[in-house]
């Protein structure tokens, strides 16, 4: 196998040299689903449900439940919906699980590819814009009922603060300065966060509110998985701050979840 050498600056070519997606496209490897015009029948595939993120004093906390549903049945109990995008950002997914996971993998590769080629990370704004483009590319699938709506957050190294972005199905990108939630239980989670959120929360409080909001959503929404002590399944939570991305220890999430559940009773 021979290597593809970079062409340098070619005025005829529109190719972005540092883009992994362009590279996939040149090799005909980009994830694409050749769907005809919708005939009214929707494809049915597992759905990832409730995710949320909230800003606090030093950064952003992101939490997701673990349930994936297919129609009215539970498809998976331990699905991961919150992922690292790179060392300083995180992405969470709601919607058609298969498409969303592929999108995350492509997004992660894209950020790492850029970082290695250019020797520097994309700005947080740049990452958020790129994700918007990826959501927009999914638009034809929306007409088949296959929707992916991510949440994106990260630590802006230039501004020195955590930032949070939401998306709509057509790739609209919105920056939020407090909290956001998406997925089937997103409404309930947001209602909970609205009642408890204030500026400059501590990390502990932000984490507790995030986990409690998922539990509150699970109370109302069958597609959201609440804490499951019997099987040892708890929400996944991550923190992005000045030190970068880190996953919150499962034991810590379990402890907080049990406290939150105890508070309710």
């Amino acid at each position: 196998m021979s290597l593809e050498l970079p062409s340098g600056l070619n005025p005829q070519s529109q190719a972005q040299d540092a883009s992994f997606f362009e590279l996939l496209r040149r090799h005909d490897l980009e994830p694409a689903w050749d769907v005809g015009a919708g005939d009214g029948r929707f494809v049915r595939a597992p759905e990832a449900t409730t995710i949320l993120a909230l800003r606090y004093a030093d950064g952003v906390v992101m939490v997701g439940d673990r349930r994936a549903t297919e129609g009215h049945t539970i498809a998976h109990r331990r699905m991961q919906k919150v992922y690292p995008a790179d060392g300083y950002s995180a992405v969470a997914i709601a919607g058609t699980a298969g498409l969303a996971m592929e999108m995350v993998k492509l997004f992660q590769t894209e950020l790492e590819h850029y970082e290695k080629l250019e020797g520097t990370r994309l700005s947080l704004e740049g990452k958020a814009n790129h994700l918007a483009r990826m959501v927009r590319q999914q638009l034809p699938m929306v007409f088949q009922g296959l929707v992916v709506v991510p949440l994106f957050c990260g630590f802006d190294e230039e501004a020195g603060e955590g930032r949070l972005y939401t998306y709509d199905v057509v790739g609209g990108r919105y920056e939020e300065d407090d909290y956001a939630a998406s997925g089937s239980g997103g409404r309930e989670a947001k209602a909970y966060l609205r009642s408890v959120f204030r500026d400059d929360l501590s990390e502990d409080d932000a984490l507790r509110h995030g986990i409690a909001a998922i539990a509150a959503a699970a109370e109302q929404d069958t597609a959201t998985g609440g804490p499951d002590p019997r099987r040892g399944i708890y929400s996944s939570a991550v923190i992005v701050d000045r030190a970068g991305y880190r996953e919150v220890d499962e034991d810590r999430v379990a402890t907080v979840s049990n406290q939150v559940m105890g508070d309710d009773q």
């Binding site: 196998m1 290597l3 593809e4 050498l5 970079p6 040299d17 992994f20 590279l23 996939l24 090799h27 490897l29 993998k105 492509l106 590769t109 790492e112 590819h113 290695k116 080629l117």
Partner: peptide, 14 residues
């Protein structure tokens, strides 16, 4: 060659 190597590796890993 470095750029070509990163492309080769990222494509394969993906």
């Amino acid at each position: 060659l470095r750029v070509a190597g990163i492309r080769h590796a990222d494509l394969k890993g993906y």
